[in-house]
């Protein structure tokens, strides 16, 4: 699937094009920042264990809720901890977070994602707590 990316990258690094100009050097430096470097290709053990781990985390949370093992507050806390573990697992194993050259590029979208995610969860809890406010 990477063919188009490769061609584009090639064109950037080779400076091809009808009017390859002098501004290209700066552009090239800017775009090199975006070039990924992929981890070596062996059997994807990390991904396999990541998949198993994500399933374990999911079923652990499900089991805790189904079997009423904890008090509601402890349950909510533990489920949130499991969710944080799940999120870091997805980001680390499947979202190529460790494969980029510079961290700066990822800070903005990650921050936005974090803000939106927290907004959705915390605001939903806040909104849905209306039951206690009303009754």
């Amino acid at each position: 699937m990477a063919t188009v990316v490769e061609q584009q990258q090639e064109a950037v690094t080779a400076g091809r094009g009808p009017t390859a100009g002098s501004a290209l050097g700066a552009e090239r430096a800017l775009l090199r920042f975006l070039e990924p470097h992929f981890a070596g290709e062996g059997f994807p053990w990390t991904q396999l264990w990541g998949y198993v781990g994500s399933l374990v985390l999911t079923f652990a949370a499900f089991g805790l809720v189904i079997h009423h093992l904890l008090t509601p507050t402890a349950l909510l806390g533990l489920v949130l901890v499991l969710a944080a573990g799940q999120a870091s697992l997805q980001l680390g194993v499947f979202m190529h977070l460790r494969e980029s050259r510079g961290p700066a590029w990822q800070v903005l979208p990650l921050g936005l994602s974090f803000a939106i995610g927290v907004g959705m969860i915390v605001a939903s809890l806040w909104i849905m707590a209306f039951k206690w406010g009303v009754s």
Partner: peptide
């Protein structure tokens, strides 16, 4: 949009 812009298209 993030990866395939032509050279020079910031």
């Amino acid at each position: 949009v993030l990866r395939l812009r032509a050279p020079g298209m910031t």
